[in-house]
Design a protein around this nucleic acid. Structure first.
Length: 816
DNA sequence: GCCCGTCACATATAGACAGCATGTC
DNA sequence: CTATATGTGACGGGC
């Protein structure tokens, strides 16, 4: 089918497609048009990666807009949201407007309402529906990208429920679901009342094969000699082989560490084949990567990249990832060793894909578990860059002929698994039943069951009654925690229930947080009563030890290097927080209870916080810490000997400790090696903690518990990664944790000080960066921010520390 | 005395969404 | 932790 024959699109669009070189539609795209995609018909397109799924979606959305409608494009990842938005924005010249809404990307409801196409993550859409975004009623077309993810245990149910809700709100809604090739696409199509378009067609040929001995054996029967020299690794031979033809490779491995070590090894392979220009460009890129964060991860990545290789996994900061992805697309980086982050993320095609590891450690499984066929196919699908490569090659590795046979059978010839709904799990229903009640979708038990009947789960299940049983369990749970009320058969959400749903909390997280906050409120009342009765004894003990925040500046002013200062702070933590039940004495108690650590631990043990892994030795470390800081924890501490929950509780303590470190200005590199995480993990934890503490603050306010100020401060401290005394400064644009500390050390302790401060002192505190100093002064509202002719105050500079090249901000920012 | 290979033994294990209100070098 | 790869320390050989 020719693009010129397309109907129902905004004027100019077919011509635009032709100008992009799209004269003719790919066969699956033609099928989708035949299925009525331009006329508002629903379609499930189950076709390989990179075979033009996005255009199918665009055709549907553009024709819907042309009919005066509004379209929603649901993506699985935030990074994809911005990618798609950028792509769709080329239709702006035909009057089509695009908006994005994700957790970290701005979105006012009204503004979104004026957009023709909205791109959002499934969770964000769910949240918008819960909160009654007005434009949801106006949708005429919804696209679900990667719809096979309904199979995902954690996030699948959200997508499933959201689609069901959208379809219920808008009865005639055109649903376009894009899926990888899966076993039961027909079932998905049935569920969505859509026509199935299924095809294995790809614009560039994909050859899948297994390397064994000295050759790759492809699925089409052909072979390619790739001998492996003695002492050489297979991956090295394969990467070098591609490189000789000027192609790049993508290597998938099963752990972060493997990604890093493989990249280190392959760097020696790529290094040998770089041009002089490439060497220079890579050196520059390496510097940029190194500056992203002051951690080992950053250095290791930069070292590898300088030689033309990179690794990619979730421990990287988002800037790291973005830089690596971009340079790989530009063919500057020759090989990327990645965990599955890259398999489903943004578009990073490569001439050759090597699936080095096909098994991955899985604790629940109890050993190395073979990857799903779908997952391996997704990785392989990254092979072949449209328009650049004649074909793509995906290679699995076998050390013996037996393994080769197994790999052919298991992956090369195999069809992907069926998609199975995971909705009937309690955690999923806990969240979604509350939301369904709270947003008025249903107000009886039967109403809920009727609604659930419209989900994929219902069309798939053979086990009748299962959904009903779980529903009853979950309703009982929600009622017991006072999130819902039942009266004569009608179910209503309580005020708190509404809040919980609106905040997008797992009700179990909310229950935990509420318990903890109530515990804190009670303990506070009780303690204050004791203090009032007990009187002066505790007061005098207090006065002998000034609180740490007050005496900090004097204490730290004399240190000359950041690390000395750091060492002192770390030591001090141990001293001050050390102690028994009495470690929070009278006045401290009044002003500092609940403590940040208590609150961090509270949010860290909710199911919404992903657990940090306990390593060997950690058990002892944190058990000890648990006794040391016993007075700070909110709620009953499980018994070390009797409670199975103790292990989880300790893992949460480890997370809480990380957050406390971050909020005490501990350096990133110190945190990364103390907890065995990457810079990206710190960011993730901090981000989640911020969200949960924000929710906790609201709950504390709603329940009138009187501790929302403490929660707010704990939240602010994680947000900026600073101690209490820097909170005022750290909020200024351009001032992060490091600069705030330097300004503070130079005697500038507040925004007001900054407005009036001696410019030479400011300049010295900022290591003589004029431009930075001007920007900061402007941000804080100073009338004459100009730094022209200003000299650094050298005396201040010396006192503030002579450490070099350490001007970086926290650099954990995520600016979507 | 030193460098290196070898071996037994220990160690660690993928990913990432969400509230609200504004803004980073 | 139904496996695996990598890191670590002890040991011995060759010089």
């Amino acid at each position: 089918m020719n693009t010129a024959d397309l109907h129902g699109l905004p004027p100019g669009v077919p011509e635009h497609l032709q100008s992009e070189g799209i004269e003719e539609l790919y066969p699956p795209q033609g099928d989708a048009v035949d299925a009525g995609i331009l006329d508002g018909e629903s379609v499930v397109a189950s076709i390989p990666t990179a075979s033009g799924k996005t255009l199918i979606a665009e055709l549907a959305m553009l024709s819907a807009v042309q009919r005066g409608g509004k379209a929603l494009y649901i993506v699985p990842l935030r990074a994809l949201a911005s990618e798609k938005k950028a792509e769709f924005e080329r239709w702006a010249e035909y009057g089509v407007t695009v908006g994005v809404s994700t957790g970290n990307y701005q979105s006012s409801g009204e503004w979104l309402g004026s957009r023709d196409i909205i791109v959002a993550t499934s969770e964000k859409v769910d949240s918008l529906v819960r909160n009654g975004a007005p434009w949801v009623d106006d949708l005429s077309c919804v696209v679900a990208d990667e719809v096979h993810l309904v199979d995902d245990r954690h996030r699948g149910p959200t997508l499933e429920v959201t689609l069901a809700k959208l379809r219920k709100i808008n009865p005639g809604l055109q649903t376009v679901a894009l899926s990888a090739t899966v076993g039961n696409a027909d079932e998905v199509a049935d569920w969505l009342d859509a026509t199935l378009v299924q095809s294995d067609w790809r614009p560039i040929d994909l050859k899948m094969g297994v390397h064994y001995g000295s050759a790759i054996n492809f699925d089409d029967g052909s072979q390619r000699e790739v001998p492996v020299e003695r002492g050489q690794k297979k991956t090295a031979a394969l990467v070098d082989d591609t490189l000789k033809e000027g192609g790049s490779s993508l290597v998938f491995v099963n752990s972060r560490r493997n990604a890093e070590s493989e990249a280190r090894r392959l760097a020696d392979v790529t290094k040998a084949r770089l041009t002089g220009q490439e060497r220079d460009d890579l050196r520059e890129l390496a510097k940029e990567l190194r500056d992203v964060s002051d951690t080992d991860t950053s250095d290791d990545l930069a070292d590898a990249v300088a030689k033309g290789a990179a690794f990619h996994h979730a421990g990287l900061a988002s800037e790291h990832r973005a830089l690596v992805e971009e340079a790989f697309r530009d063919r500057l980086i020759k090989v990327v060793c990645a965990t599955p982050t890259l398999a489903a993320g943004v578009n990073t095609p490569s001439r050759r894909v090597i699936v080095r590891d096909w098994r991955r450690y899985d604790g629940e499984f109890g050993g190395m578990k073979p990857l799903d066929v779908l997952e391996v196919h997704q990785m392989c699908g990254r092979a072949g860059r449209p328009g650049l490569d004649p074909y793509g090659e995906a290679v699995l590795l076998a050390k013996d002929s037996e393994t080769m046979d197994e790999l052919f059978e298991r992956y090369v010839w195999a069809e992907a698994e069926d998609v199975r709904s995971k909705l009937a799990a309690e955690p999923a229903l806990r969240t979604h039943l509350l939301a369904t009640v709270a947003s008025g979708f249903a107000n009886t038990r039967q109403g809920l069951l009727d609604f659930l009947d419209q989900t994929l789960y219902a069309t798939q299940t053979t086990e009748s009654g299962r959904l009903e049983t779980v529903t009853d369990t979950v309703l009982a749970y929600l009622e017991a925690n006072e999130f819902i009320e039942r009266e004569e058969g009608t179910i209503r959400a309580t005020n708190i229930g509404h809040t919980v749903s609106r905040l997008y909390l797992d009700p179990m997280s909310a229950a935990e947080i509420i318990d903890g906050l109530r515990y804190a409120a009670d303990k506070r009342v009780e303690k204050l009563r004791v203090i009032e009765g007990g009187g002066s004894a505790s007061k005098s003990s207090k006065s002998s030890r000034p609180s740490k925040s007050k005496n900090e500046p004097d204490e730290t002013a004399g240190f000359t290097t950041a690390s000395e200062l750091q060492a002192e702070r770390d030591g001090e933590d141990d001293d001050v927080e050390d102690g028994d039940d009495e470690n929070l004495d009278a006045d401290d108690f009044e002003t500092t209870y609940p403590t940040p650590l208590g609150l961090y631990h509270l949010v860290s043990r909710t199911p919404d916080m992903y657990e940090l892994y306990l390593k060997s030795g950690d058990r002892e470390t944190y058990t000890e810490l648990c006794y040391e800081r016993e007075a700070e924890f909110l709620g009953r501490t499980p018994s070390e000997y009797e409670d199975v929950a103790f292990e989880d509780w300790l893992a949460a303590l480890k997370t809480a400790r990380l957050l406390e470190d971050w909020a005490s200005e501990t350096d990133e590199d110190r945190i990364t090696d103390r907890y065995g995480v990457g810079p990206g993990d710190i960011r993730g934890k901090v981000d989640t903690a911020q969200w949960l503490l924000g929710a906790a603050e609201q709950l504390a306010g709603d329940l009138d518990l009187g501790n929302n100020v403490a929660v707010r401060e704990a939240k602010k401290r994680v947000e900026y990664g600073v101690r209490e005394e820097l909170l005022n400064l750290a909020g200024v644009r351009g001032v992060g944790r490091k600069r705030a500390r330097r300004l503070y050390e130079a005697g500038i302790v507040s925004r007001a000080d900054l407005r009036d401060a001696d410019k030479s002192v400011v300049l010295a505190a900022l290591r003589g960066r004029q431009k930075t100093a001007e920007n900061i002064l402007e941000a804080v509202g100073r009338r004459d921010p100009s730094m022209d002719e200003i000299e650094e105050d050298t005396s201040t500079r010396v006192a503030a520390g002579a450490s070099e090249d350490d001007d970086g901000q926290a650099s954990l920012g995520d600016f979507g």
